[in-house]
Design a protein around this nucleic acid. Structure first.
Lengths: 129, 129
DNA sequence: CGGGATCCGAAAGGATACTG
DNA sequence: CAGTATCCTTTCGGATCCCG
């Protein structure tokens, strides 16, 4: 198991900036949870705020702006009365899904001392992993 | 591809702590790069320090301790002269590989303006993906 | 409802120096 | 080589108030 069955490719990883950017982007405090909560479809500000406990409105708007700047989420304004604003994942954002799910799966399998009572199989569509 | 092939599971993500922990763990400043550099096999402190530009020794030892505490890396001391210390991924850490590679792929595809000259297919043993 | 602006304490990160 | 200790700067995150 510890034996490296991989290739003897010694000349790997001369440091990768894009990977670094990506991992630090989704690693930001609430970003992962926000993206994860958006996997289902469009959401309004309050919805996201509501299903991520501990997240403040300031942080949410900050994260949302970052994600928008990265082209991961799109912001759509419906000029009704009052205005309704919906956030959705772009294609780039949607492709993060497999990563989020993979990470969810890993976290569930190895979470602390094997606590299978979080999302494991019920709460999240991690079944496809 | 943009079409959500997922289930119509609306009642997802009532917030997941283990996912949160995981994403914030590997999202810490250099953790992703460190794990990524260890995918090849055992490395010594200086090796990791060397192939992650910008990483300071203090942060490396800090991250290494965190990863060790999480059971992601193992530390082995060889009492030669002088002592040689090697860090390797545990099974738990090795399973992060698919996630790291997936994130690498995503980052490469969407990195800024599609710059395919980073690691994409050459520098890293991502072939197994 | 959907945010923006500001203030401030906490925490993370970097630089440097020193040790076994 | 493989770290630890200290200091100091930057950033993050929470609270509060305010606006359209």
């Amino acid at each position: 198991m510890a034996a490296p069955a991989m290739s003897h490719n010694d000349a790997l990883t001369p440091y990768c900036p894009v990977f670094q950017s990506a991992v630090e982007l989704i690693g930001r405090r609430w970003t992962g949870a926000i993206v994860r909560s958006m996997l289902c479809g469009s959401l309004r500000f309050s919805d996201i705020l509501h299903n991520v406990p501990g997240l403040s409105d300031r942080l949410l708007s900050e994260r949302l702006r970052e994600l928008e700047a990265q082209g991961i989420v799109s912001r759509t304004v419906y000029p009704e009365t009052p205005v309704r604003i919906e956030y959705a994942l772009t294609e780039k954002g949607t492709e993060l899904q497999e990563i989020v799910l993979a990470l969810s799966g890993w976290a569930s399998r190895w979470g602390r001392e094997a606590k299978p009572s979080c999302e494991t199989a019920a709460a999240c569509p991690g079944d496809l992993a």
